[in-house]
């Protein structure tokens, strides 16, 4: 039982990251019906951006100070991810706005490979694992025999806060409403005076910012990053988005946590679970698409974005 709860906790932490990344997939899909295959790489470059500040720009005296280092790392991570995403949208996706569906998907795969390779080749030491700073204490505490790391608490709290903030943004603000309008009927949105190119950019920006935060979290939890981390995390997050019902923000969050928990439990309870740990996401993905293609909140695929 204790082990079960422990895995639930682990899964929740894992799921927080998936959920944050999944939001980017789901929003972009809601707006332009593109599976942004390169979104995992946006997450990855964010982590590298954060690492860069810590390693090269922060003076040593400040690097140990959580209140300086953590915001600095997060801000630069977000800036790098957002910059990359905006360039990607402008240069690679926008020219294909009216092309047949598969063209932008193939482009997205190209962008994904390009970004991975760019980091591998041009980031100092990019070909190997890079240690990521433990910005928050690496300590843990016990609740009823279940061990929880402080980093995990941070990860879950920040993720949930961001998710709530995004919901409020999309529901309440003018830009948020413009996003929903664009996802429901882009042409009609234009007739309202909405600049849908701007809305699309905002969507990429929001998704990238959340992914960047997820990237920093991932680095802090595993203490290392490399150019490959975006691929699997991206696919799993996509699975989470589909699981929740793509286009649906609440769904992405729910899907993220569920997938994290499924993965944690399966790794624990299925014989030799850990050598199969990356399979569960795919099995979940296939199962969802086959049984309930609309996802869990399928009836509300409606409230896209």
């Amino acid at each position: 039982m204790r082990q079960f709860v422990q895995q639930l906790v682990n899964g929740t932490v894992l799921g927080a990251t998936y959920g944050l990344i999944a939001l980017g997939y789901t929003m972009v899909y809601g707006i332009i019906q593109l599976i942004n295959f390169a979104h995992g790489e946006i997450f990855m470059v964010g982590a590298f951006g954060g690492l860069t500040v810590y390693r090269y720009w922060l003076p040593e005296s400040l690097a140990g100070n959580v209140w300086v280092a953590l915001p600095a790392v997060l801000i630069v991570a977000i800036a790098v991810s957002v910059g990359t995403a905006v360039l990607m949208e402008r240069l690679a996706y926008r020219p294909l706005r009216n092309a047949p569906r598969l063209a932008p998907l193939i482009t997205a795969i190209g962008v994904s490979i390009f970004l991975q390779e760019a980091v591998r080749l041009f980031y100092p030491g990019g070909k190997r694992q890079q240690p990521f700073p433990q910005l928050i204490s690496s300590g843990t505490f016990d609740v009823a025999g279940v061990t929880v790391a402080w980093v995990s608490v941070f990860v879950v709290v920040v993720a949930v806060a961001l998710m709530v903030a995004l919901q409020v943004f999309v529901k309440k603000t003018k830009t948020g409403k413009a996003m929903r309008a664009t996802s429901q009927d882009p042409e009609s949105a234009k007739l309202m005076g909405i600049d849908i190119n701007r809305v699309i950019v905002v969507t990429f920006v929001l998704g990238a910012a959340l992914a960047a935060v997820a990237g920093v979290m991932q680095g802090m939890r595993f203490a290392q990053i490399d150019f490959r981390i975006g691929f699997l995390s991206g696919l799993k997050a996509f699975t989470a988005a589909v699981l929740g019902g793509i286009g649906n923000i609440t769904g992405a969050v729910l899907g993220g946590f569920l997938l994290g928990i499924v993965e944690a439990l399966a790794t624990q309870y299925v014989p030799q679970g850990s050598s199969w740990k990356d399979v569960w996401a795919f099995i979940v993905l296939i199962a969802v698409l086959v049984v309930r293609p609309g996802g869990l909140l399928g009836e509300r695929v409606a409230t896209r974005a």
Partner: peptide, 16 residues
Amino acid sequence: LRGDYLAIVTLGFGEI
């Protein structure tokens, strides 16, 4: 499934 979903699912099968 529609084209882009199919693409990702086949990716999943490939990895499996």
